[in-house]
């Protein structure tokens, strides 16, 4: 069943990270991003197990943003978790800069910085992250 959640804004730059594991992961990710001169995610800086969790449209969009130096831009995504998310896991995602807007079972509607997506995808309880896709009304001509 879907439940709405209050929108919470989290400053991803100044927020203290209390979870050491998350800190290490983020540091690793940022370092990897900073050192990468490749124009794409194909350069191998992320293990396949992480990239496998990202849908192609999202990988493409992340590449675009990185090429433009806009990896801090927030993206709307649908995140699938292995099970209903726990408060601890929710807190962990929030520390990555994720804002969860609503949940529908194991699917979260969320926004987060593009730069945080590989780190989030590396978490074991994250199964899949898909970029928000546009639909349209179906009135025929």
């Amino acid at each position: 069943m879907v439940a709405s959640r209050p929108i919470r804004r989290i400053d991803t730059v100044t927020r203290h990270l209390s979870n050491a594991t998350t800190t290490v992961l983020i540091g690793f990710t940022l370092a990897a991003l900073a050192c990468s001169h490749s124009s794409s995610l194909a350069g191998g800086e992320f293990p396949p197990a992480v990239l496998d969790k990202l849908d192609p449209a999202l990988r493409h969009r992340m590449d675009e943003l990185r090429a433009r130096g806009q990896s801090d831009q927030r993206l709307s995504v649908l995140v699938r978790t292995a099970a209903d998310i726990s408060p601890d896991q929710e807190g962990q995602l929030e520390r990555l800069g994720m804002t969860i807007h609503s949940t529908s079972g194991v699917i979260l509607s969320a926004t987060l910085p593009a730069s945080s997506i590989p780190t989030a995808a590396a978490l074991d309880y994250i199964v899949r992250i898909e970029l928000a896709k546009r639909l349209k009304p179906r009135e025929a001509p």
Binding site: M1, V2, A3, S4, S76, V77, L78, H101, S102, T103, S104, I107, S109, A110, T111, A132, K133, R134, L135, K136, P137
Partner: peptide
């Protein structure tokens, strides 16, 4: 008309 917002909209109506 983004699917994420559509999901949020459904959550809103159901809540």
């Amino acid at each position: 008309f983004y699917d994420t917002d559509i999901e949020d909209g459904i959550a809103y109506i159901e809540s």
